[in-house]
Write a protein that binds this DNA or RNA. Sequence first.
RNA 1: GGAGAGGUGACCGAGUGGCUUAAGGUAACGGUUUGCUAAACCGUCGUAGUGAUACAAUCGCUACCGGGGGUUCGAAUCCCCCCCUCUCCGCCA
Length: 423
Amino acid sequence: MIDIKLIRENPKKYHDGAIAKNLGVDIDKLLAVDKKLLAGKKQLQQIATEKNAIGKSIPKLSAEEKPEALAKLADLKSKEAASNEEVNALQPQYDDLMGKVPQPASPDVPYGEDDTENVKLRKWGTIREFDFTPKDHVELGLDLDIIDIERGVKLAGTRNYFLKGDGAMLHWAVLRFSMDFMIERGYTPMAVPLLMRDEAMRGTGYFPGSEEQTYQMERDGLNLVGTAEVPVTAYHSGELLKEDMLPIKSVAMSTCFRREAGAAGKDTRGLYRIHQFDKVEQVIIAKNSEEASIEYHKEILANSEGVMQAIGLPYQVVNVCTGDLGRGQVQKFDIEAWMPSRDSYGETHSASRFYDFQARRMNLRYKNSEKKNVFCHTLNNTVIASPRILIPILELNQNEDGSITIPQVLRKYLGGKELITKK
RNA sequence: GGAGAGGUGACCGAGUGGCUUAAGGUAACGGUUUGCUAAACCGUCGUAGUGAUACAAUCGCUACCGGGGGUUCGAAUCCCCCCCUCUCCGCCA
């Protein structure tokens, strides 16, 4: 949600911002509705003032004066009803339009249509050259009996899988390593509910817009989250925080559910695009400050790069272009890990900053030093998402005999094991 | 699933038709006292919208006691619908 005052002051910025993001919103119409709505509300206010004045005088009036006053009131009431009807008709239009106005991207964001126009910022690590023909993670997993996609599909449909033995252990190892990594950096670990009310989905900006991507429990009016960002960011929604509580840095591990509607036929092989995965997510709730937001954005990106470097996965960081940004995001940096089987970098992390877009929607505020109530800023980033991250881990660490060398930092989570071999 | 209770300001909690923005308390802020801390005492302390003035200070108006509607000259207070929370019983990881 954007502050209507800012839109009134600078409609062009929001109009152009929406176009850059490929998200159509009729700003002119919004302003027209806003103008009418405001006029209607002012009129209602004026009527109320008169009504209140007459109402207050009633007990003091004489018997002769009373009927006149009551007649006046009746007249005002009918006027009020008419204005009210107008306002009630306009309000939903206004709310609908307002809910769709995107947060304009930062000037640092490259202009572009879609993910093909994202701009590479930097690369880390060297891409391994194989002196044998490498297998992809599906083959490796099958041969080692640590990934079973066939039975996942048999029991749960396409894009489902089982992890077994060291596969399951490796999956948990990256998650636990990531949790430990973040906790050491001062982030508060959270275990969170995964079924969220619509309100939380709206507050974080997923609704309206991503209903198709969400598993909805219609009978209960709840939604399976696609990321722990939802419960963690909305944790303090509707609250007035104290300034000295900020920033609140949290890290949560959760299962994530995505319908992948509209992705039919895309990334169908292996563990890349699946309906259910586990993710460690970092969230920062911060003061309302652009500079601070930018700083924290760097911090959460650095955290994730730190994890990638510790595991030893080559990656690149991209500055996501306008057309590939979500409605609320000011700027987004993706980390993409090198995946031999795709012969390219594949997205594994996504670091976003929102300014007060989410906070406004969920009424998340704090009292600042001037005793004013202001909306917080929110940010989030993946720390690690598995099993997608197992793709580069397995493929890059495979040996000619089909075994996998476990990255050093993960070994302690597999009882010190160094190698995954065929049983 | 059965039965009951309840949703009031940052928080707790009074308030059952009119001078109620809402008692009292906590927290916060300013001050007095004090060697320091604490305590005590005094004072300040709602949000949003809108208007006047210069976008500041300030002043005025309006709305807001879960949400929506109704009764009434007038509603936190009465009526209806919805949402949410809690308690007890049952079932159960």
